[in-house]
């Protein structure tokens, strides 16, 4: 079951890389976060860790529901361009993405021997990190760049739950708090009309 959701996590991120519409990108981000939350719940149940269960629920509520909702409302409020064409052409991206996946599995090989649990998941986390960076790089518009940043945060979270069986609760809650703070700052940055009125 965990393997299935890890696969979904990666697949949703890859699909997001090919998306040319903003709302669809937000849907894929939401789905990506949902799989991450479910993964945290599954691993939490498996290792009987209450902290990870709380983290899983928080992930689903904050990342899969609240953040995509806020981003969509920002896009309506500040009139974002919804047609988001990636700079990298699809035919090149089709070659580049598997290359990144193979490269990261090769890169993570020495590490995976050192991690007892879920060793292949670490490689997937690192490849997700690279794919999120690619998402940030391949778009000129700010909104997909933000989604890339949030996906990067998801990849780090996946690394946290797979490589270490979850970080301490206090740290994970702090990371959630910072994420919410980032959304507040992003909202303030979008208020360009404030500049004109100043």
């Amino acid at each position: 079951m965990v393997d299935f959701f890890i696969g979904l996590f990666l697949a949703s991120l890859i699909t997001a890389l090919f998306t040319t519409r903003l709302y669809r990108l937000l849907v894929w981000y939401s789905f990506n976060s949902l799989t991450l939350g479910v993964l945290a719940l599954l691993i939490g149940i498996k290792i009987d860790d209450n902290a990870m269960l709380i983290t899983g629920i928080a992930t689903i509520v904050i990342k899969a529901i609240a953040i995509p909702y806020f981003l969509k409302s920002f896009s309506q409020k500040f009139h974002f361009i919804r047609q988001i064409q990636p700079n990298i052409k699809i035919q090149y991206a089709i070659i580049l993405i598997p290359a990144i996946l193979v490269f990261t599995f090769y890169l993570a090989k020495p590490i995976t021997h050192m991690i007892a649990n879920n060793s292949n998941y670490v490689a997937i986390s690192i490849s997700s990190l690279f794919l999120s960076l690619l998402l940030m790089m391949e778009h000129k518009n700010v909104a997909p760049k933000i989604t890339g940043f949030l996906s990067m945060e998801n990849s780090l979270f996946l690394l946290g739950i797979t490589a270490t069986n979850g970080m301490p609760m206090l740290v994970e809650l702090g990371i959630f708090f910072d994420l919410l703070m980032a959304i507040v700052v992003i909202n303030l940055l979008f208020r360009r009309e404030e500049m004109k009125n100043a």
């Binding site: 970080m167 990371i175 910072d178």
Partner: peptide, 22 residues
């Protein structure tokens, strides 16, 4: 972890300070 949380908070707050120049 707390070191990172503090650093992230400080970083995010400076983002808006840059924008005070309109």
């Amino acid at each position: 972890g707390i070191y990172w949380i503090g650093l992230e908070l400080a970083t995010l707050s400076t983002v808006y300070m840059i924008k005070t120049n309109h």
